[in-house]
């Protein structure tokens, strides 16, 4: 059982039934994942800070905002947190609706513990992946911001695979000058090698 990726994430349980909430917390905590439980969707929204890593375990039937409503609300507001839906008695339309909104899994009560835990694991892994990608992007963007427009130009040309001379010609400056620019770009972007700089440029472009 690989438990390493689960360590820093939290599972947010939202269920109106207190016994259900407590039992879920008890079960999920048995695999070493911290759990925070909420009695309603509103309570969760009030307490949740975007950016926290983890996943949601949602009951469908709740007074006020239902589990599915909450899921849709989060998608609408671009809050990317994967959800596992559980329900007393599910039907196909309900399951379809959940999956469409990007649910990791749709589980019917009473459920096998492994099924639920597996779904949670998958959700967290997905979230981790999403999160690391996102943070790399952020880092590159931040470094790019430090470049002067000329340095940026130089960087683009370098990552395009053009030689120093070619760049000097096209920009109408000496190769020596380009050399200096290139060295500063490498320094500012904290790139160890040209290959690394190229990957950064790719990440940055993906974002753009």
């Amino acid at each position: 059982m690989s438990e390493s990726p689960l360590t820093k994430s939290t599972v947010f349980v939202v269920d109106d039934d207190q016994a259900m909430r407590n039992s879920l917390k008890w079960l999920i905590e048995s695999v070493g994942v911290p759990v925070e439980s909420f009695a309603s969707a509103d309570e969760f929204l009030a307490a949740y800070q975007p950016g926290r890593s983890g996943c949601l375990v949602l009951d469908v039937r709740m007074p006020g905002m239902s589990g599915l409503d909450l899921q849709e609300y989060l998608v609408e507001h671009n809050i990317q947190i994967p959800a596992v839906i559980i329900t007393g008695h599910g039907d196909v339309p309900m399951a379809v609706r959940a999956m469409k909104s990007g649910a990791i899994d749709f589980i019917e009560k009473p459920f096998n513990d492994e099924v639920l835990l597996d779904a949670i694991r998958r959700a967290i892994a997905y979230e981790e992946q999403q999160r690391s990608h996102y943070s790399e992007n952020l880092r590159v963007q931040e470094r790019l911001a430090h470049l002067t427009p000329r340095e940026r130009e130089v960087m683009e040309m370098v990552t395009d695979g053009r030689s120093n001379k070619e760049i000097a010609n096209s920009l109408g400056v000496s190769a020596k000058t380009i050399e200096a620019h290139r060295a500063r770009v490498m320094e500012k972007m904290q790139a160890g090698s040209l290959a690394e700089l190229v990957r950064m440029a790719l990440v940055a472009n993906e974002r753009a």
Partner: peptide, 18 residues
Amino acid sequence: LNQPLSAIVNFANGCARR
């Protein structure tokens, strides 16, 4: 009836895992 039963299953499984 499903609610308490589900809770019981969860508690029991949690205990077993621990």
